[in-house]
Nucleic acid binder design. Structure first.
Length: 214
DNA sequence: GCAACGAATCGGTGTTGACG
DNA sequence: CGTCAACACCGATTCGTTGC
């Protein structure tokens, strides 16, 4: 949780745990998050999907960003719902039609169809939407897509802390796990009262601990 | 003595394979 | 399952040289 949720390095966490009397090495931290992260993520996603299936009025924000791995450019995609919660993220190698097509399909399959899809004005976004039969429901706009772009910020900060991602595989995995864990813990922090926020946080933590036990 | 600028070095990252 | 030592890599910093 520490590694995925906060922009800390593996060695930072080693020291943090040491302070609390847990003696493990940073390689072990890495092993842990790579092994258990995806498990937690899929559990969280499952629960969210069940909870929200009854309310299909979704507005999705779709966005992508760039980053480099060993000098090569990659473009992670990310889908954010109308509340700013991250639904899904995946990494594509190129910024073309095929990539833009694969991603929404995958997310839809997992979360059900959305009513409105908000993207940026990329041309490669328009073509695939036609293929899915989504033309009517796609909205593009200069400022409409802020939700998705904002969630990139966290990713950037993370990338900075760990001084870039090394491998495609770990980036992909981190993106998926980070999305699930983050949205699990951050539910509209600024929009609800302090008291409500505390209740939500306690609930999220309790649920997390339940997952740990399981 | 000073400024400019490229080369070398340092500090910190995730990753890897040998090993127990 | 976990540690250890080593690795490649990168940005920031320091060093060394050059020109004036």
């Amino acid at each position: 949780m520490l590694y995925v949720r906060f922009p800390l390095s593996l060695r930072n966490i080693e020291d943090l745990l040491h302070e609390r009397g847990v003696d493990v090495s940073h390689e072990t931290i890495r092993f842990w998050w790579q092994k258990f992260g995806p498990m937690f993520a899929s559990e969280i996603r499952k629960k969210r999907a069940n909870r929200l299936r009854s309310w299909p009025q979704w507005r999705w924000h779709l966005g992508e960003m760039f980053l480099k791995i060993n000098g090569e450019r990659h473009s992670p995609w990310r889908a954010v719902d109308h509340q700013g919660e991250v639904l899904e993220s995946c990494v594509a190698k190129t910024r073309d039609k095929k990539a833009a097509l694969k991603f929404p399909r995958k997310s839809m399959k997992r979360h059900g169809r959305s009513h409105v899809l908000v993207t940026d004005r990329l041309r490669s976004c328009g073509a695939p939407m036609k293929d899915i039969g989504n033309t009517r429901r796609q909205e593009t706009g200069r400022w409409l897509n802020n939700r998705a772009e904002n969630s990139h910020l966290l990713f950037r900060r993370r990338e900075r802390a760990m001084q870039r991602f090394r491998r495609m595989r770990s980036l992909q995995m981190f993106a998926a796990v980070h999305a699930a864990v983050f949205s699990h813990f951050n539910s509209e922090r600024s929009l609800t009262s302090r008291q409500n926020f505390k209740l939500n946080r306690a609930a999220a933590l309790a649920e997390w601990r339940q997952l740990c036990v399981a």
